[in-house]
């Protein structure tokens, strides 16, 4: 177990390093000089050279990468070219919106998908199963940002129940904050719920005919108890895996949904950095998102090993 853990951790670190090198190099190789972008077209060559020196842009690529990486490892992500503040502060500030949004969306999608998937499996090939099937097909096909627009039309413009966008900040209290995140989270959760319902249904169907579930029924447990206490916990492994794998899409969705609802989150930060050509922020946000995806997949791997002893033997 320990040796697997060490191997996986080394692989995690190597992957993170390669991704960081890749992001840095891509951002560097593509045309465009951050100093020129910051100063505009009217800057004199001397000012330009001075700023390039100040930003370390006159150093060769490997040196700049190592300096950047060293900074990243110490939590110093550099200065934003446009805001003039440390990028780490910006990311933390925006994370206070994106993280609750992502968690809320995940919780919502699981809360809908697991019961739906389980019931569909219990009554498989029945009308309930068909409805659940239609639900997952449709929800996978709709773009999250479009669902966001529809929710705004329904709950903000027509009913006036919830805000159409913006974020009051957590200082305004828990409820106003949650209220602002509710519609975006629903929009983000819907496509996820569709995928998870499918996975949950298939997983429960798989274990429902296993011996231990039959034993549970045979010893007189009700169908519901046999399913929820014995089948569902075992069926959760694929659901958790899918949750991890879908994380990339959750992030992609968050970038869009934050833009629909005008939420000051990380996705919006990346988008604003793009419009302002703030390469330092772009680099760090992309690295942050990618690291999040990689670590998430790593954790799913570990959870796998922890849940299923058979894999520990197989992973040698």
């Amino acid at each position: 177990m320990i040796s697997i853990l060490i191997r996986r951790t080394i692989s995690l670190i190597v992957t993170l390093l390669v991704v960081s090198l890749l992001i840095f190099t891509v951002m560097d190789l593509l045309p465009g000089d951050p100093a020129a972008i910051m100063l505009g077209t009217s800057a004199s060559p001397d000012t330009l050279a001075a700023l390039q020196h100040q930003l370390g842009l006159d150093q060769p690529l490997p040196i700049r990468y190592l300096a950047w990486l060293g900074g990243v490892l110490q939590g110093d992500l550099g200065q934003s070219y446009t805001y003039g503040v440390p990028v780490s502060g910006l990311i933390l500030e925006r994370l206070a919106v994106t993280l609750p949004l992502a968690v809320l969306a995940m919780v919502l999608s699981v809360a809908v998908a697991v019961p739906l998937g389980v019931q569909a499996a219990r009554r498989h090939n029945g009308p309930f199963d068909a409805v659940a099937g239609v639900f997952s097909y449709v929800s996978i096909a709709v773009p999250a940002f479009w669902v966001g627009l529809l929710l705004i039309i329904a709950f903000s413009t027509m009913l006036g129940w919830l805000p159409a966008g913006g974020f009051p900040g957590w200082d305004a209290g828990l409820w106003p904050g949650l209220k602002a995140l509710l519609l975006p989270a629903v929009a983000l959760a819907l496509p996820q719920a569709g995928v998870l319902t499918r996975v949950a249904r298939a997983a429960v169907l798989d274990v429902m005919n296993e011996d231990f579930v039959r034993t549970a029924r045979a010893k007189g447990l009700s169908e519901g108890t046999a399913i929820w206490r014995h089948a569902v916990p075992n069926a959760l492994i694929p659901v958790v895996t899918m949750l991890g794998l879908q994380f990339t899409f959750l992030i992609a969705g968050a970038v869009l949904v934050e833009n629909v609802f005008n939420l000051p989150g990380l996705g919006r930060l990346a988008f604003q950095a793009l419009s302002q050509r703030d390469i330092a922020v772009m680099q760090d946000v992309v690295l942050f998102f990618s690291a999040l995806v990689i670590v998430m997949n790593f954790l799913v791997d570990l959870a796998y090993l922890a849940i299923d002893p058979r894999l520990r033997a197989g992973a040698q």
Partner: peptide, 15 residues
């Protein structure tokens, strides 16, 4: 796989 297409598109689009 770790870089969502929307982000790589943003990186590309930046230039």
């Amino acid at each position: 796989f770790a870089v969502p297409p929307i982000l790589s598109a943003m990186m590309l689009a930046a230039f």
